[in-house]
Structures are given as C-alpha cells and as structure tokens.
Design a protein around this nucleic acid. Structure first.
Lengths: 132, 132
DNA sequence: GTCCCTGCAAACTCTTTGCATAAAA
DNA sequence: TTTTATGCAAAGAGTTTGCAGGGAC
C-alpha cells in the first residue's frame, strides 16, 4: 500500500487491509478490530471504522450492500456476487454470472441514470441444512 | 385488516399499514412514525417498530433489503425491484423483469439451498441529475 | 516542523425491550 | 375478565466524531 492515494500511510491502515484480505468471511468492523488488535493491541475501533471507510471510498475494498445490522467488508474487489444464509447470517462468495443474468437494457430507467446493480442470493448454508 | 393473522387487531396497526400503503417512497420507521402521529398523536415509535416487524413477519409488508443505515419498508408486496439514488438516497420502484434476468440454475449453489435473490439497481435520479 | 492520523471517549442514530397500563375480545 | 398491544423510557448495537497528542514525511 505504498500508493499515493492517501495523504499519509499508516501501519494501522496497512494491517487492517492485510487482515481483511486474508479473510473470505466478509467480516464486520468489530470482527476485524479483534483480529487487528492481536497485532496492534492499542488500536481503537474508531480507527478501524475510519480506515475501512477510507479504503472503500478509494475503491480498495468494498462495503457490502447486504441487509443485516452491521456493515460487512470485502477485501476482494473482483466482480462477484454474495450468498447469505438466512439462518446464521454467514455470507459466502458467489460467482459472477452477470452475462447470463442481466440481458435487458437498464441504462436509463424511470429517469435514473442507472450505474449498476447489486444482487444478493439467499438460502440456507450447508452447515445449517445439516443441523436441521 | 380484519384478518385472523393477529391475536388482537389494533387501531395503531391498522393506521400504520394504511399510511404505509399510501406511500411509494419506501419510508423508514421514523418517517412513518411522523405521519401516523398526525392521526394518533400519542403513538410511540416503539409501537411503530413492533408493528412494522410484525407485519413484515406475516408477509403483509416488506422490509427492503437495501443498504443504508435505516431499514425501509414497502407496503406493496407485489414482485418488483428497486432502484436507489446514490446521491440522495431516494428509492423508487423498478419493474419486475426477472424472467429476463435470471436464467441460470441457482437452486443449489456452493452447498446452499438457494431460496431466492434480491436485486437492487442504483444510479442517479432525475432530480439529482438536474441539480448537477 | 507540518499536519494527517491515531487513541480515547463521548455522542449519535437506529432499534429493541421491560414494565405498568390500556384496550381488544 | 383475560391477555395482547401500547406508551414510555431506558438500554443496546453499530457507527461517527471532537480533541489532544503521536507519527509520517
């Protein structure tokens, strides 16, 4: 992250990004805070929020547009969808099959300049299916 | 709402539903609370939340699965999508064109029993386009 | 040395909940 | 009369922010 996208580089931001990229579990800020705390014990939750917000506004990570009380973050910004378990709240990656999904012209709709769309699948994950 | 779906019928619930159904603006609980307050001045925000939750769990209204800090509600449960303005947060209805959208088999995915999906479009609404 | 970023804590927004009372049935 | 639903207020969860001090450059 030796990029010029920030006014300063900080160890905190570097490690937050590093830890987020290790995961495929789309953690909340609180989860990430716990992980990062192991490496920077005195880091504050506020710093985690500030950096996650900054990173997502720079397009380096994604805030997921899924329901649920807490915002979830994704270090993988390649195009892909998500599938959420309605039982346990777990979120997994789903492949990008947008070419097979969207084949109507949505460029101008209801007066909107349409920029894109979010798709989230939902269902019951294998773990929850077993425990039923 | 003379239905047997509830243990009791209440004037509060009736009016909350009535006001929600008047709107196409997908209001938050707080917005709806202000409207309903005009008709029932002593109603509490807690009652609005409780009834919106109840109504959505009975399938009479929908909680929208869109991003944003506050949950939004929709009194129209016919199948349709939504489009959100990234500038002002406004949410409009979008037609249901699911038959043209999803044409891959998603019934079993990644071990999930897939139940469905949510699609939200986003872009810039006509009002915001003008003011740029 | 400058000024951005941090840690800390307080504040803020949205939502839920416990309790006594009011109102359906 | 019985029991659910309400109003009120407090509490809870998630997130943001003001400020003084520390660290990047």
């Amino acid at each position: 992250m030796q990029e010029n996208r920030f006014q300063r580089n900080s160890r905190q931001r570097e490690i937050i990004l590093e830890e987020l990229r290790k995961l495929h579990s789309h953690p909340t800020a609180a989860t990430l805070y716990k992980l990062v705390s192991k490496r920077i014990p005195r880091i504050s939750l506020g710093t985690v929020y500030r950096n996650l917000d900054l990173l997502s506004r720079k397009g380096i990570i994604h805030k997921l547009e899924v329901g649920g009380s807490a915002t979830r973050f994704d270090g993988d910004i390649s195009k892909h969808y998500h599938i959420c378990c309605t039982e346990c709240g777990r979120i997994d990656d789903a492949l990008d099959f947008s070419d097979k999904i969207i084949n109507v012209d949505i460029s101008d709709f209801n007066g909107y300049a349409v920029k894109g769309y979010h798709i989230n699948f939902y269902g019951i994950c294998s773990d929850c299916r077993e425990s039923h």
